[in-house]
Design a protein around this nucleic acid. Sequence first.
DNA 1: TCAAAAGTGTTGACCCTACACCCATGG
DNA 2: CCATGGGTGTAGGGTCAACACTTTTGA
Lengths: 228, 228
Amino acid sequence: MTRHYPHTKRILVAVDCIIFGFDQNDLKLLLTKRSFEPEKGKWSLIGGFVQDDESLDDATKRVLYKLTGLKNIFMDEVKVFSEVDRDPMERTISVVYYALIKINKNLKLSRDYGAQWFSVDDLPVLIFDHNNMVDAAHEKLRWMARHQPIGFELLPKKFSIPQLRRLYEAIYDKELDKRNFSRKIIAMSMLEKLGEKDKSTSKKGAYLYRFDKRRYRELVNKGLNFEI
Amino acid sequence: MTRHYPHTKRILVAVDCIIFGFDQNDLKLLLTKRSFEPEKGKWSLIGGFVQDDESLDDATKRVLYKLTGLKNIFMDEVKVFSEVDRDPMERTISVVYYALIKINKNLKLSRDYGAQWFSVDDLPVLIFDHNNMVDAAHEKLRWMARHQPIGFELLPKKFSIPQLRRLYEAIYDKELDKRNFSRKIIAMSMLEKLGEKDKSTSKKGAYLYRFDKRRYRELVNKGLNFEI
DNA sequence: TCAAAAGTGTTGACCCTACACCCATGG
DNA sequence: CCATGGGTGTAGGGTCAACACTTTTGA
């Protein structure tokens, strides 16, 4: 015997991803050319319908993997967009995620989606309510970056303090005092200083650091609360 | 011509609400006896399926109204629960909201749901993943109450500082220094002091205040950031 | 008159901000 | 040798936490 809840018209469930990356000085996000109707050919977020056998997290991982070839991407739910007419073709609710990835030469984007990086403050018009999704995701990113150590997800494993500062300046769209910033971040003692220097942005070179996740967790257990 | 996206098995979309209330000293939440299969008769969150013609917010408002008779309840999305087998009957994803209401003698709960208030730290076992939903909602409430002035939604329009403090003590499950607390909250100057006193909890009586939303917005525009 | 809750002030520690100069080095 | 970005120290103000006693009044 198969039992069912009472019938309602079908509601499709989708996920859409705001994929952030950081490229030296700019916070960017990845947009794709929509490959199917409606609005085929327009700029849109990457997304997909949730399948029978997957949770929303699974669906998001699948979508991200197909585009970037990466697994274990940092991702976080933002909110659900569910206005009745948001998709003109059929009733679809969409759960928005943001994801953080490291832009570097190893990153090989699938050619299938016509994906392109855009600076967050110079975006094209997107389909449906996708611009609103971006706004919501950006706001959540700012909030989370301030209170959780997620900024490191956007940087290479080894990074310099000035690089980290530029990242936060890009996220907050605000200049930060370099002395205060480095004092604060070092005082949290969750960074491991490496011997090497990064000379790509200056002649003197800047010391490289690594985020020490284990140490961070210890500190949190001792009552540290991260805030930048 | 009707166009459709490719077919997938139907996924039902539901909302579930964690309704918080504050009763003098305790943070409570409202549970109902489930009235349909599966798990009929067990304690559960109040919820409902999203209908064709409503957004998630609409659905949540409808569910809250049917139970409490109230409109304009404060509510906020927490996250989506979407594990494939979370509902044994049929694939259902559920969007969790928390809502804040004022418990008082005007509150007339519908008799249809067998609803009952429970102290947040003395809850029964709930159906499905509802206990996890409560945990997620409670965490979000703590977070939000610290950073946004939502605590007032749980108190009567007129309230005393000690009452407000007891509320925050209940939310954080932590004692707060009454001198520091009242200094801090008054310094934010978003409360309007009224002439009257509340004598229900002491012989001396405590001055009543009102939250001044307009003033609060002004302060935020001037760069205040609320934090308790 | 006493019990019970409300109200109030001070101090020291810490943290945050603002600010300017020297260092290292590749070109 | 000089232009460029990296690195560092200090002082003042503000904020926060810790702490105890007086006030009011109903019972």
